[in-house]
Simulated assay, not measured.
Amino acid sequence: MSADAGGAIDSWKVSLPCTRAEAEAIDAGLIDIDAVLMTSEEVEDDRERWRLDAYLERAPDAAMLAAIRALVPSAADIEPVVEALGAQDWVTLSQQGLEPIREGRFVVHTSAHPVAPPPGGRAFLIDAGRAFGTGHHATTSGCLAMLDALAGQHFANVIDIGTGTGLLAFAAAHLWPDAAVTATDIDPAAIAVTAENAAANSIAGLKLIVADGTLDDAIVAAAPYDLVIANILAGPLMSMAPELAAIAAADATILLAGLLETQRAELVAAFEACGCTLEAADRRGDWTILRLKAGATRFVPATPPDPKGRDGWALDI
């Protein structure tokens, strides 16, 4: 793309409202459209208030507008907002949120912003793409900080539920190289991305499973886990509290994220009902990351877990 010194139009943006489900479908799929697609929350933790922005190198014609509208059926009756952008506008927008993040011994970067690891630490290459968890959301970076703080402890069996890009599982594998580390996600595309990221970061030995929560025979067979990580959303975490507690070993550490501070008390109560106790909390803006300790004896749920009432639980982070 190019623009002359007088500020000629260099690119275009088409914007439409969408739901989170539509945003996830866009982000998780290989969309055959000649545009760069970006989705974002307009209202935190509101599944219906998201936005799609499509960036193009030329003015959109009727066919392109129709193709973009087809991605977000909920906006079928809404006229898209079409904006002309200059070169500097495009460069700035396309680089937003891509700078490396640092949490303790970890640094997370994209291909566009390579960086060396800190002394004694580890750098992870995680490009934004078809799955969630680049480290730039407060929930993921907060989980990295929580894991870094646990480095002096020993864990032998770790599970990361809702792994997204695999980042938290990679951090656990680095901290505890002798541990068995399992990464799961309800979305097959996320598991495919995790496998790609593991190869790019030379992470070997991860067990990858497509599963809804803990509802997989391989997950149950490998229990109990002495470290359980779940960076999802508050509603699903509350409904999954019995099953997460059930796969945890006695006195296991449980890291929970994806919840707003306003949801903390209700979520803690749900896990206290399963014998867990709150040990630490890290508030980052509106979001809170929790570290809990499982009970001294393994929790046995009164009824089997029922996935039917769950809300979608992949978090865009």
Rank of each mutant, 00 (worst) to 15 (best):
A70D: 10
A67D: 10
P305T: 03
C274W: 04
I191K: 03
A246R: 09
E22M: 01
E24A: 11
L93K: 13
A269M: 00
G205L: 06
T297A: 13
T163G: 00
V158R: 04
A131S: 15
G235K: 14
D212N: 15
E41F: 06
A234Y: 02
A234E: 02
D216C: 11
D212S: 11
F271K: 07
G235A: 14
N197L: 09
L233W: 11
V108M: 03
I317K: 04
T182D: 05
G129V: 07
P119F: 02
L144C: 08
A180F: 06
I68T: 05
I9P: 02
E57L: 12
A294Q: 07
G285F: 06
I26C: 06
D148A: 14
A183L: 04
P177N: 03
R51V: 06
G275H: 05
L168S: 07
K293C: 13
F124R: 04
D178A: 15
A183V: 03
A280V: 02
S40N: 12
V158C: 03
N197F: 10
F124G: 07
E48R: 13
E99K: 12
K308M: 10
E83W: 00
R298L: 01
C276A: 15
T110H: 04
I186N: 09
E261H: 14
V107G: 06
L144D: 02
L206S: 00
Q95M: 14
I161K: 02
L37I: 10
W90T: 14
T288R: 10
D282L: 15
N197R: 09
M146P: 00
L233G: 00
A28F: 04
A204Y: 04
T303Q: 13
L16S: 08
E261D: 15
G164D: 02
L125N: 11
A151D: 08
A23G: 00
S94L: 04
D53F: 05
R310A: 05
A123N: 01
V82P: 12
E22V: 01
L315W: 11
